[in-house]
Design a protein around this nucleic acid. Sequence first.
DNA 1: GGTAATCCAAGAACGACTCTCATTCTAGGC
DNA 2: GCCTAGAATGAGAGTCGTTCTTGGATTACC
Lengths: 165, 165
Amino acid sequence: MIAATGSHDLRQSAADPVVHDRIEALLRVRRRRYTPRCREVIDVLASSGRPLTADEVAQAEDSLSISTVYRTTGVLADLGVLRSVAGVDGVSRFELSEALSSHHHHHLLCRQCGLVLDYELPAALEKALHAAALRITRRAGFTGPAERFDIEGLCPTCTELVANP
Amino acid sequence: MIAATGSHDLRQSAADPVVHDRIEALLRVRRRRYTPRCREVIDVLASSGRPLTADEVAQAEDSLSISTVYRTTGVLADLGVLRSVAGVDGVSRFELSEALSSHHHHHLLCRQCGLVLDYELPAALEKALHAAALRITRRAGFTGPAERFDIEGLCPTCTELVANP
DNA sequence: GGTAATCCAAGAACGACTCTCATTCTAGGC
DNA sequence: GCCTAGAATGAGAGTCGTTCTTGGATTACC
C-alpha cells in the first residue's frame, strides 16, 4: 500500500487521541510537559501520509518556529515517539514511530526531489528479511538491529520533468 | 560476507589497473583528465573495505585538499563511477560503484558513530527483493528503481561503549 | 498567588558541503 | 623544448540544515 502517491499534499485528519495519551504518558515519565507546540508537531506528522522535513512541519503550523520543531523532534525521537528518516537529499525527515502509527513500513525515495513515501512489504518477505538481518548483524557483532528496505527512484513528478523539461 | 569488521582501518591494496583504465575512458568521453588527485581518490576508496566520508578520503592522502575531494567525488558520482551513501549521521560517504567494484552489496550502519560497513545477501533473497521492488515502484509510478536493504544498529565499538561508558 | 521548573522564539554558532577565484598544471600544437 | 588554452587545484568565503544559547513567557504545583 502506498501513501500520498503523486501529489505531495498532506492528509487532513489529526492524530488519534490514544496516540496523544501514550505520548503524554511517555513525556510524563521524563518530567516533560505535553505542550501545545509538541502536540502540534505530532498532529502535523500524524496527519501527513509521509515523513516530513523540519521545514515542512514548521510551514504547516504558523505557530511553530523552526527551532521549536528541531528541539521538539529531537526530544520525541529520543523518546522513541518519532523516527528520523535520512533522505537522499541530505535533509532528515520525521515520522511517527511504527509503535504509534501501528503499521510496519519501508520507504520509497525520489533521488531528484527527495520526496519520501511509505509502502508495505508482503508479510512472508518481511519475515525472510528480518531473519537475514538478524544473521548478518550477529555475524558483524552489531546489536539492536532494525532493517530498512528502501527503494530509490524517480517519483512520477520528476519522471515527467525529465521526459519533458 | 562482512568487510572491515571491528576496527575501522583501511585495507592496504590500491585499485585494480583495469578499474583505472575504465574510469580514464569514461572521463575522456567527458573531456576530463584522469589526474593524479582523481586517481588518489579512487585508490583510497578502492583500498578501503567500506564507504568513506570526504574528510576520511582527504585524511588518507596528504596531497588531497577537502575541496578537491568534494569536487572530484561529485564529478565521479555524476559519471556513475562512485556512489554516494547517505549515513545515519547526516554525513555522506562514497564508495566505488558496483559496476566497478564487481560485487553487489548492502550496508550495515551504526546509529551511534555513523560507521558504514558492506555485506552481501544470499542470492535467492536478493532476487525476491528485486522482484518486490519492481512491483512496488511500478505501482507508485516511480521509475529507475534501485533497492537498498540497509541494516541499522550499534557497531561492536559503540555497543562496548554503551555497556561500559 | 508565589515560585520553581519548563517551554519558547530569536538569533548566534556549528558543520557539511558548495562556490569563487587566483594560481598551477598539462595536453597538444608549434 | 617552448607556448598557450583550458582544465585542475587549494584556500577561503558563502550557503544551508541543524543545534545551542539566552532571556523572557508560561505552566504545574504548592
